[in-house]
Design a protein around this nucleic acid. Structure first.
Length: 249
DNA sequence: CCATTAAATTCAA
DNA sequence: TTGAATTTAATGG
């Protein structure tokens, strides 16, 4: 009789089969090209990694050997600043790529990545990726589109951090989370601490708390602990549009 | 920035 | 399922 802890939600679904063929992920570039890639050395040599919540699976400065795809869960990508301040570069969800330069000539990671929830990752080695990209134009094209989008988003973020006020940056962050992760029961479908909002918006935890309090008073958002609900998305959007910022991604 | 208090989450029995 | 322990939020100096 195996004494398994019942307290943790240990539901063993059919996640036993982690092969690309069994994957349900509609966003994954590899999954979407599986007709071409099936039985390729890339797919057959991938490895999977399970991360617990809060676990860091890419350390800044560690050597690069490949590329991670998220099979399940969410991840934050960070870069540590000069004073030890952690800047969240982006949040990533199922189907997205972590460690963008994993197949290039880069030798060491310039970013770190931490699981926000229990997460399953697929890991593809640099060698097989390079081989596959060289041989499959369609796959290479899809990858290029993904990278172009990321670059666009990253450039927008630079602008927002340098030109917007704290309040606008916090609102921008809320809208970004809403866009990307959507709502669940009227709350944003990704629980983040105020510190994480601060690290993403490029401000401090206190500032975020104060902006949240103001927004609550103005009935633009609702907050219960870590759960944030957006009450009036139109007004929020307008507030940053007036400062001539828009564009989705 | 830090200290205090209130509130929420986690953990283990 | 509960409540004690720990972490996180909120406020004011």
């Amino acid at each position: 009789m195996p004494a398994v802890a019942m307290s943790s939600h240990t539901r063993f679904r059919s996640i036993n089969d982690l092969s690309c063929g069994a994957c349900q992920n509609k966003n994954c570039i590899i999954k979407n090209n599986l007709s071409i890639l099936e039985d390729s050395s890339l797919v057959n040599n991938k490895s999977t990694l399970r991360c617990k919540k809060g676990q860091q699976f890419i350390m800044e400065g560690a050597p690069v050997n490949g590329l991670f795809f998220i099979l399940k869960g969410t991840v934050k990508v960070i870069r540590t600043g000069i004073n030890g301040r952690e800047q969240i570069v982006r949040f990533a969800k199922e189907g997205e790529i972590i460690g963008h330069r994993g197949f290039g000539t880069e030798e060491y990671y310039s970013i770190g990545a931490i699981a926000l929830q229990d997460t399953i990752l697929c890991y593809f080695s640099k060698e097989y990726l390079q081989e596959t990209l060289l041989n499959n134009p369609k796959f290479a094209f899809d990858m290029m589109l993904f990278y172009a989008n990321e670059l666009n988003r990253s450039e927008n973020k630079v602008k927002s951090i340098s030109q917007m006020t704290v309040r606008e940056r916090v609102i921008d962050s809320l809208l970004y989370i809403h866009r990307k992760f959507g709502n669940l029961n009227g709350f944003l479908n990704l629980p983040l601490s105020r510190r994480e909002y601060a690290d993403y918006a490029g401000t401090t935890e206190e500032q975020v708390i104060r902006v949240f309090s103001a927004l609550k008073k103005e009935k633009l958002i609702a907050a219960q602990g870590k759960k944030i609900g957006i009450s009036d998305i139109q007004l929020l959007k307008r507030e940053i549009n007036d400062h001539n910022y828009f564009l989705d991604s």
